[in-house]
Design a protein around this nucleic acid. Structure first.
Lengths: 222, 222
DNA sequence: TACATTAGATGTACAGCGTACATACGTCAA
DNA sequence: TTGACGTATGTACGCTGTACATCTAATGTA
């Protein structure tokens, strides 16, 4: 890094919490969370590493903020009377956000400080459910169940060893073939008769689960 | 580390993949995943760090194996005709295992190589579902939905900023109080009228969700 | 306009990390 | 007895987060 060159363009764009945050998210999106270092962020911003610490207490603080941005990006426009539609839209939004920020699920797990984005998200979900006629207790039940399914599905989806959900067929067969035949007969049956068939799309499992849950919840509305 | 002392006791217990694996899991269980380093594992085993690389290609290889141990520890004894009971038992087993190995959820997300423990787990779940009368397609739907819920619930549970699920009341109020009053009216209502009440146990949400899903699936059996 | 205050950027340093690589050693087959 | 081979040792390198001291540029006050 050339200090001379840097100092000439010093004041172009002042460093700020927002700029650091956006840069960190960009780097994590592009290169994965393991490529996110304070040094990389600083370099991307044309700044010395320690400058970041004027805006974030430490790397954990930065990670907390990154997770909260993820919550902020969730689209939770209240759906009025069509509460199921609203939940479906929100669920899909979460899936999109988590696909855009693949680091988020891994980072979420080690965070303990909920930020305003997190709070806003949950407040709006509960609002939608309350306005749809759910009792307070049932609204809590409902959003916990929905959140569990949505984030859990995303976790499974990202654990799959391929990028797109429509490439399951070939890969499932390949993985199975790495193990002795008949070690996993039921898994093999599923792949042979269902998952391994051309046209199978793992994403369809998301709609199945979501529909089942929404139907179950609907029957419990006040 | 004293080499003299080590060499005197050199052959007491030979290093092995299993011993490295067990030590790594022990360290991660006790001190969290961030305290798991190849150097720490080596020191715990009274060995130089590079010795581990005779048994694992690299740290990722070790993490893959650790996750697979977690799958192996899941209790999936087939429940015969009582498929719901079997699923409930298995779900609780997963929750126990993930509580015992709090690092697992965070690590799972970055793994792409399913091991034999993972395969066995899924094979046995599908077997239980098939024997309960589910079609192949429906068995895949069912275990994807169940897995999503169970792992997703565990993710939420571990994100909660307290250890035990029965301490929600005080803490929920404390967190809310850090933000301007009435910023999150629906969240506040939930806490005031339900979550914040003494005796509320977040773990009960698990049974609610599981029961709803099992009931929904039951109506779809062949 | 001149000066004091201060927030923020710089630059150095340190301990710890994963692991490449060369060396040494213990065990077993011929 | 010797040679081969698998495993452990020991060194080294480039990377990490961040403590700390220093410098610099912008801001508030007279």
């Amino acid at each position: 890094m050339s200090v001379k060159q840097r100092s000439r363009t010093r004041r172009r764009v002042p460093l700020s919490r927002q700029r650091v945050l956006r840069t960190a998210i960009k780097l994590a999106d592009e290169g994965g969370i393991e490529s996110l270092s304070m040094r990389n962020v600083a370099q991307e911003l044309g700044v010395y590493p320690m400058a970041l610490y004027n805006h974030f207490a430490n790397k954990d603080d930065l990670l907390d903020a990154m997770v909260d941005v993820m919550y902020e990006e969730i689209d939770v426009t209240a759906g009025g009377s069509d509460w199921k539609g609203a939940m479906r839209q929100q669920a899909n939004s979460i899936r999109e956000v988590l696909a855009r920020h693949r680091w988020a699920l891994g980072v979420i797990q080690s965070r303990v400080h909920p930020g305003p984005g997190n709070m806003r998200y949950h407040d709006m979900v509960i609002r939608a459910l309350r306005q749809a006629g759910f009792s307070v207790a049932m609204a809590v039940h409902a959003f916990t169940l929905l959140d569990s399914f949505i984030f859990g599905f995303a976790l499974q989806e990202q654990t799959l060893p391929f990028e797109s959900t429509d490439q399951v067929d070939k890969l499932a067969i390949e993985i199975l073939s790495q193990f002795p035949a008949d070690d996993y007969p039921y898994l093999a049956e599923s792949v042979a008769e269902h998952v391994g068939k051309a046209g199978y799309d793992f994403a369809s499992e998301f709609d199945f689960g979501l529909d089942l849950i929404l139907a179950g919840l609907d029957s419990l509305r006040a």
